[in-house]
Design a protein around this nucleic acid. Sequence first.
DNA 1: GTTATTAGCTTACTTTTGGTAAGTAAAGGT
DNA 2: ACCTTTACTTACCAAAAGTAAGCTAATAAC
Lengths: 121, 121
Amino acid sequence: MENNLEKYADVANCPVRNVLDRFGDKWSTLVLLLLDEAAVMRFNELHKAINGISQKMLAVTLKTLEADGLIIRTQYPEIPPRVEYKLSKRGASLLPHIQNLVQWANTNFDAIEESRASYKR
Amino acid sequence: MENNLEKYADVANCPVRNVLDRFGDKWSTLVLLLLDEAAVMRFNELHKAINGISQKMLAVTLKTLEADGLIIRTQYPEIPPRVEYKLSKRGASLLPHIQNLVQWANTNFDAIEESRASYKR
DNA sequence: GTTATTAGCTTACTTTTGGTAAGTAAAGGT
DNA sequence: ACCTTTACTTACCAAAAGTAAGCTAATAAC
């Protein structure tokens, strides 16, 4: 049993940690969900769609998602500039799992809120 | 379409955000995975199993997981104290989804690492 | 009588993350 | 000459998360 547990011990190069960290952040999942619905979106579209995100945070989020190969950025040499974002194959393969979590979250949200409210000490 | 997107706009009381935030943190998933394997674990067992977590962070993590009703804490009035943690039904119902993500992370880890390494600008 | 055990709590400190506001570039309209 | 548009970047600041180390309390072992 001790051996079985060791599996998760090494946080630094744990695939799970390393990947989960990426959409454990504040905005990544939101971006992925939006891109899943809309097929293609521009920077300002995303900025308007995600109420509360700053331009900086959106830029950072998009950049790391692109770096991980989860989304594809296409820029057209026009002026004013046009940049489009869409899900990559890899991103699309991740999405069903996120959707499952979303569904779980939706069905369990009320109960969890209650638990939190009644939790003392 | 604009309407469709609005769904995710209100971050504050979005069930998705609100729940995903909870195990988007650094340690929660690890604790849940461990408890899934071991059925029952004590504080120090967890502390040893999760290499790198501090006592404070473990305490905080366990407390929020308990508050959300994902784990059950049972304390025995002995000295020295004995406290046992296990998954609740709700926690157990979440676990398959996390396992799916873990699997996705494992199969895609190498490719993502490569993407990250070759990503410039 | 000192030390170890257990499950934390507390304090002080550092690091990471997120947010605000302003600036940039290049061309086209007025 | 100046404003607008788009997709960012930069500098700065606040808040959240994480770390290290010490404290507690009761008992049993040495």
